[in-house]
Amino acid sequence: MPAPTALLRRPEEIADAANVPLPTESQDDELLLDAPDAVPSDINAAQPTGDADTEMHVDEESRPRFAPAKNTDGPARVETRKVPIPPHRMSPLKASWSKIYPPLCEHLKLQVRMNVKNKAVELRTSKTTTDTGALQKGEDFVKAFSLGFDISDAIALMRLDDLYIETFEIKDVKTLQGEHLGRAIGRIAGKDGKTKFAIENSSRTRIVLADSKIHILGGFKNIHIAREAIVSLILGSPPGKVYGNLRTVASRMKERF
């Protein structure tokens, strides 16, 4: 019985028929050299496949080192604040409401409403709020307006981080009653408010006289300068002496900046 034709072919003829090149000695050597570098499948399976952000690394001093936190889209929960408005400031609030809510909604991305019944301004964060301190800045802005500051001065609290408001009463400096209290307030204000304006311009602050309470808006050092001048006037120093001290302080501030 004759043998099949496929078995009678030589290896060269089989390779030519299949168009597959035969392996040479050099190819065999390359395969043998690359084989030890291959990583077994069981070793890959043993390696941890955890997330890189949650994985904890330890430095040379055995202190844990975590990956930096990712930026979130906004606050995790909705927070609200209620700022009470004094009765005598409700009318100015209604008149200036069209100028008050745009900075809160557009700049800080807050939700705001005026509660006429409770005489308060309510603030609330939303999904679009990106700044974590937006609620506190909005509260400071509304509170500054409720104390009697202008809107342009109160907006500076939202734009600058080193501004503060300090409040004290005349009786905290010296116990005055009756006409003595009125004269002290008159010395602070001056004729047509000239003394108060001079203190504001020299110390770069804003001052509000609300009866026996005094509110000062400005930087930390500037508030200290304005407070010292007001305390001197309350204790009875003549305005001329206070003006001289303010000129000296203003010249030093110009040299510093």
Results as ranks from 00 to 15, higher is better:
Ser237Lys: 11
Glu30Pro: 01
Arg77Lys: 09
Gly240Phe: 10
Lys196Pro: 00
Ile165His: 00
Gly244Cys: 05
Gly190Lys: 04
Glu169Thr: 14
Pro75Met: 11
Arg89Phe: 05
Leu209Lys: 02
Met90Asp: 01
Ile199Arg: 06
Thr130Phe: 02
Val116Lys: 08
Pro87Val: 11
Leu181Met: 09
Gln111Met: 06
Ala154Glu: 08
Thr132His: 04
Ile225Gly: 02
Asp192Ala: 15
Ile230Leu: 11
Ile214Leu: 06
Glu79Asn: 12
Ala35Thr: 06
Ala210Cys: 12
Thr195Asn: 03
Lys127Ala: 14
Pro238Leu: 12
Ser126Leu: 07
Thr128Lys: 07
Gly219His: 01
Lys119Asn: 08
Thr248Phe: 03
Ala210Pro: 01
Arg81Cys: 06
Ala134Trp: 08
Leu32Asn: 11
Ser152Pro: 01
Glu169Leu: 03
Val116His: 05
Ala46Thr: 14
Asn245Ser: 07
Met1His: 03
Leu33Asp: 14
Met253Ala: 07
Ser91Phe: 10
Thr80Leu: 06
Asn118Met: 10
Met1Ile: 03
Gly178Gln: 12
Glu106Cys: 04
Glu25Thr: 11
Ser232Cys: 05
Asp150Cys: 04
Met90Cys: 04
Asp29Met: 14
Ile230Thr: 05
Leu8Val: 13
Asp150Arg: 12
Leu160Phe: 04
Ser62His: 10
Ile199Leu: 07
Asp34Cys: 04
His215Lys: 01
Ala17Arg: 10
Phe145Ala: 01
Ile170Ser: 00
Asp51Phe: 05
Asn222Ser: 14
Ser152Leu: 10
Arg10Thr: 15
Arg63Leu: 11
Met90Trp: 03
Phe66Gln: 04
Leu209Phe: 03
Ser212Asp: 13
Pro68Thr: 13
Asp28Gly: 13
Lys254Gly: 07
Ala229Tyr: 00
Ala120Asn: 06
Arg63Asn: 13
Ala156Trp: 04
Lys194Asn: 15
Val142Trp: 02
Thr54Met: 05
Phe168Ser: 01
Val20Tyr: 03
Phe168Pro: 00
Gly244Trp: 02
Ala6Cys: 12
Arg10Pro: 05
Val78Glu: 07
Asn118His: 12
Ala226Leu: 10
Arg89Met: 14
Glu200Thr: 08
Pro92Ala: 09
Gln47Phe: 15
Ser202Phe: 07
Ala76Ile: 04
Pro48Ala: 13
Ala67Cys: 03
Arg256Gly: 06
Glu179Ala: 11
Ser212Asn: 10
Glu169Pro: 00
